[in-house]
C-alpha cells in the first residue's frame, strides 16, 4: 500500500504547489504535442493518398471498412480536421477537441500503415494526446489537468519501455543480449539504408561493433537495462537519470542501427530536463515579460518571492 501511495503521489503530485515555470513549461509541452500531431497526420495523409486500398487493415480498420478514407483525398480532409481540432484544444475552445483529434488520428494511422508494416514513431505522441484529452474531459481545474496529463504520460512512458524489455525477455530470453544478434540487426538495417539511399555503407561505430562481439553484447545489455528500469520514472527522484539513459539508448540505436525515433527522443528530452525550474529562474532573473501571458492570475511571479507566512514556495 505504501508503494502504491508513493507511486500516485509521485505521478500526479497534486499536493505540491505549482510554479509559474511549470505552467509555462506545460503550455510549451502542449504546443510541442500539437505541432507534431499536425505534422504527423499531414505526413501520413500525403503518403496514404497514393494508396488505393487498405491491404492489411489494423486497429479499428479490422472492424469497420475504412477504405473510404483513401478515396477523394479524404485522408487530407481528415488531416485538416485534426489540425483544426488541435487548434481548438490548444486554445481551450472545446473540451472534446483533443479526444476527437485522437480518434481521427487513429484512423489516419490505420490509413497510412495498412501495407503490412506498422511504425511506432508516433506512439508516445498519441499516448500524450490521450492524456491531454482525458485531462481536459475529467477535470475543471487547469492545474489538475496539467498534473494529470504529465503523470499519465510518465506512467505510459515507463510502462511502454518496460513492456519492450519484457517482450525481448519473453521472445528470446536473457541471451537476447548476445552481441551477434546486434550484428544481424546492423546488417538488416543497412540493407534498408541501401534500399532507401541506393548506397550500402557502414559508419565507424558499426564497423567497430561488427568487429567486437563483446562490445556489441555490452551495448545490447545496456539498452535492455535502460528499458527494464523505465518504470522508475514513475518516481520523481529517478526520473531524470532514467529518462536520460533512455535518450542515450535511442542515440545509440540511431548511431548503430540507423533507426531514428525522433519524436520519442524530442519528447523524452522535454520530460527529462528541469525546464520548469529553468524557466522559473529565468523569470526570477527579470526577463519575464515574454512569459507573463502564459502565467494564470493568482500565480506569484517568481521574482516577487513567496507570500508572507508561506513555506518559501509559490502557492498553488
Amino acid at each position: 500500500m505504501r508503494l502504491l501511495r508513493s507511486l500516485w503521489d509521485n505521478l500526479f503530485d497534486y499536493d505540491r504547489p505549482e510554479t509559474p515555470g511549470e505552467v509555462v513549461f506545460f503550455r510549451l509541452f502542449e504546443g510541442f504535442i500539437a505541432v507534431f500531431v499536425v505534422e504527423q497526420v499531414w505526413r501520413w495523409g500525403l503518403y496514404a493518398r497514393r494508396l488505393d486500398v487498405l491491404a492489411v487493415p489494423h486497429g479499428l480498420g479490422q472492424y469497420v471498412d475504412l477504405g473510404w478514407l483513401l478515396r477523394h483525398d479524404l485522408v487530407l480532409v481528415n488531416a485538416a480536421v485534426i489540425t483544426v481540432l488541435m487548434g481548438l484544444g490548444l486554445l481551450r475552445r472545446s473540451r472534446y477537441a483533443y479526444l476527437a483529434a485522437f480518434l481521427l488520428m487513429h484512423l489516419q494511422y490505420v490509413a497510412r500503415f495498412s501495407l503490412g508494416k506498422v511504425e511506432h514513431g508516433a506512439n508516445l505522441l498519441g499516448m500524450t494526446l490521450l492524456g491531454l484529452s482525458l485531462g481536459l474531459l475529467l477535470f475543471d481545474a487547469p492545474r489538475v489537468q496539467r498534473r494529470f496529463t504529465l503523470g499519465f504520460t510518465y506512467f505510459f512512458v515507463g510502462l511502454g519501455y518496460a513492456l519492450a524489455a519484457c517482450s525481448k525477455l519473453v521472445g528470446t530470453g536473457l541471451h537476447w543480449a548476445d552481441g551477434r544478434h546486434l550484428w544481424l540487426w546492423i546488417q538488416e538495417k543497412s540493407i534498408d539504408g541501401w534500399a532507401q539511399t541506393g548506397m550500402l555503407a557502414y559508419n565507424a561505430l558499426q564497423e567497430l561493433v561488427l568487429s567486437a562481439p563483446g562490445l556489441a553484447t555490452l551495448f545490447l545489455a545496456l539498452g535492455l537495462l535502460a528499458e527494464a528500469s523505465a518504470p522508475l520514472i514513475w518516481w520523481r527522484r529517478y526520473r531524470m537519470p532514467v529518462l536520460l539513459a533512455l535518450i542515450g539508448m535511442h542515440v545509440g540505436v540511431y548511431l548503430i542501427m540507423g533507426i531514428q525515433f525522433r519524436l520519442f527522443v524530442l519528447e523524452l528530452i522535454l520530460l527529462a530536463l528541469p525546464w520548469a525550474a529553468w524557466i522559473d529562474r529565468w523569470i526570477a532573473a527579470g526577463r519575464s515579460s515574454v512569459w507573463s501571458g502564459f502565467i494564470p492570475r493568482g500565480h506569484p511571479h517568481p521574482a516577487e518571492g513567496s507570500p508572507p507566512g508561506s513555506s518559501g514556495k509559490p502557492t498553488p
Binding site: H106, N123, L130, A164, S167, K168, W185
Partner: peptide
C-alpha cells in the same frame, strides 16, 4: 495504436 507492447526486436 497508440498502444503497443513494442515487440520489434524481441525475436533475436
Amino acid at each position: 495504436w497508440p498502444f503497443s507492447i513494442y515487440p520489434m526486436f524481441s525475436q533475436a
